[in-house]
Computed example of a mutant assay.
Amino acid sequence: MNKRIIYPTDDGVAVIVPADCGLTIEEIAAKDVPAGKPFEIVDVADVPSDRTFRNAWSWEAA
Rank of each mutant, 00 (worst) to 15 (best):
G22S: 11
D50K: 11
T52F: 07
L23T: 02
G22D: 04
N2P: 15
V33L: 02
A30W: 02
T24N: 08
F39R: 01
A29Q: 01
A45P: 06
A35F: 00
F39I: 06
V42W: 09
V33D: 01
K31L: 05
A30S: 08
A56W: 13
I16G: 13
N2R: 14
P38Q: 03
V42Q: 06
R51S: 15
N2A: 10
I41Y: 01
K37R: 08
V33N: 01
A29E: 00
V47C: 11
A19V: 09
A35I: 05
A61G: 10
A45C: 09
P34E: 01
G36Q: 00
E26P: 02
I28S: 02
A14M: 02
A35H: 04
A29K: 08
C21K: 11
P38K: 03
E27Y: 05
F39K: 04
S49V: 12
S58I: 08
R4E: 03
A35G: 05
E26L: 11
I41H: 01
A14G: 07
T9D: 00
F53W: 10
I16K: 12
T24W: 04
K31V: 03
E27I: 06
P48Y: 04
R4N: 09
I16T: 12
V17C: 15
S58T: 15
V17I: 14
V13K: 09
R51T: 13
W59N: 04
E60I: 14
F53V: 05
W59S: 06
T52W: 04
K31N: 04
V44R: 15
A35L: 01
I16P: 13
I16L: 15
T52C: 06
P38F: 02
A35W: 00
T24L: 11
V42M: 08
E26C: 08
I16Y: 10
R51M: 13
A61Q: 09
D46Y: 03
G22N: 07
V17M: 13
V42N: 10
K3V: 11
S49W: 11
P38R: 06
R54F: 15
T24Y: 05
K3F: 10
V13P: 05
R54L: 14
G36C: 04
I28N: 02
I5P: 00
I28T: 05
E27V: 04
D32E: 12
V33C: 01
D10P: 06
I28F: 00
K37N: 00
S58G: 13
D43I: 06
A61M: 03
D32P: 01
K3M: 12
D43E: 13
P8L: 12
D32T: 07
A14K: 05
D43H: 09
P38M: 03
Y7D: 04
L23S: 06
D11K: 09
F53C: 09
I41L: 07
V42E: 03
A45S: 15
V13Y: 05
